[in-house]
Design a protein around this nucleic acid. Sequence first.
DNA 1: AAATTTACTTGCCCTATGTCAAGAAATCAA
DNA 2: TTGATTTCTTGACATAGGGCAAGTAAATTT
Lengths: 213, 213
Amino acid sequence: MGTNLHGNSEGIGFNRPETQPPTLSVKDFYKHPELSPEDLERIAQAHEYQGISKGTMLLQEGQRAKAYYCIGSGLVRSFATNPSGKDITTGFMNQGQIAIEVASLFLGIPTEENFQTLSDCQVWKIPLLTFHELFNHIPAFASWGREWMSQALLTHKLRALRMITEPARDRYLRLQQEQPELLQQVPLKYIASYLGITDSSLSRIRKGIAAGN
Amino acid sequence: MGTNLHGNSEGIGFNRPETQPPTLSVKDFYKHPELSPEDLERIAQAHEYQGISKGTMLLQEGQRAKAYYCIGSGLVRSFATNPSGKDITTGFMNQGQIAIEVASLFLGIPTEENFQTLSDCQVWKIPLLTFHELFNHIPAFASWGREWMSQALLTHKLRALRMITEPARDRYLRLQQEQPELLQQVPLKYIASYLGITDSSLSRIRKGIAAGN
DNA sequence: AAATTTACTTGCCCTATGTCAAGAAATCAA
DNA sequence: TTGATTTCTTGACATAGGGCAAGTAAATTT
């Protein structure tokens, strides 16, 4: 295999000490006005805390997700593989975000995306079955889910639009502004494919920005 | 104004005879295993039938949608306007599809998209208030909505991905295969911006296809 | 039917980005 | 520490697609 992201499906329980303890609790992921403290408690109980080491595949295309992950610390990327074999990064999820695959979640169809940790992560994991149960029994949780999905939908529409309207350089600058952490932690090739360009091009764009700004 | 798509906000009730009566009923839009005939009936009742003439703006950016539209016949496009003034087609909705704006629907935020009829349309319109009421009272309807949204989310993710991975020509061919009607009915410039290219480029792509295939 | 507007095509030239390949720098593995 | 792998940069060249402008065809308005 020969990569440090070796795709072990069982990278659970790393030992390296975290540099920063996450200041998040699982309840922070479920902010919604209608959710009562009791609801929140019940939801929180349904999660299991896990440490996951860098390079772990959380989900592979063709599978159906069995859980989703609230990211307490660390970084996850999702990617799709091109017919021609290249992988295209479709998203980054970091602290405070949820790594989730919608096709599996509500449609029960196998995913076309892969999810992979880019660093050691601390996550709260919730099985999809449990999720559905809570979802059906706690209306406020359903509201939360609806809002989450609406937001995701907007985000993806906007992404498609920007791929059309903005030149690569602008997309890079926007990413730099909105998620500067990413540029530090993520290999350039993943950033590049996320922006829809090659790594060579991104390298040149960077150079251009560094020079004439 | 000087365009046949004159953006009248009150193009309700055209008189031109339809060439084809729509074979759809409003219930056809709400296929879901959990929806009982009674539910369906109640939902159907909440819709109002309307004829809308070509060129009508159903929704303008900056507004909050007050309703959505099930398209019995005709064609609608959504578009966003670029900072530089150009409009970019973000989607086409035709017979059997729903013209809806998610930001307004569940987030209550003003839309950044415009919706415009590209032909005379027959629609079933449902006010958002009524929709929310039914949505909250009929669990199966909520399931339907969730599924609709999941599907929409997948579609938009895929669109963004294809903008990255496929060349314009392939995107055109795909559109031609998946929605051939569109190419007949829609001005080239709208198709072009939907595909993320200029009308000149699309014209050349067409030419190329017509020649060497 | 004349005038106007819109739709589409085409030519010329330009730019952003891709492809391929090489090499330096950094990181990881042993 | 050495070797292997990955990361990033850079060069030479190719190409898809954009910008602009002209021109014809088609449709709409008057």
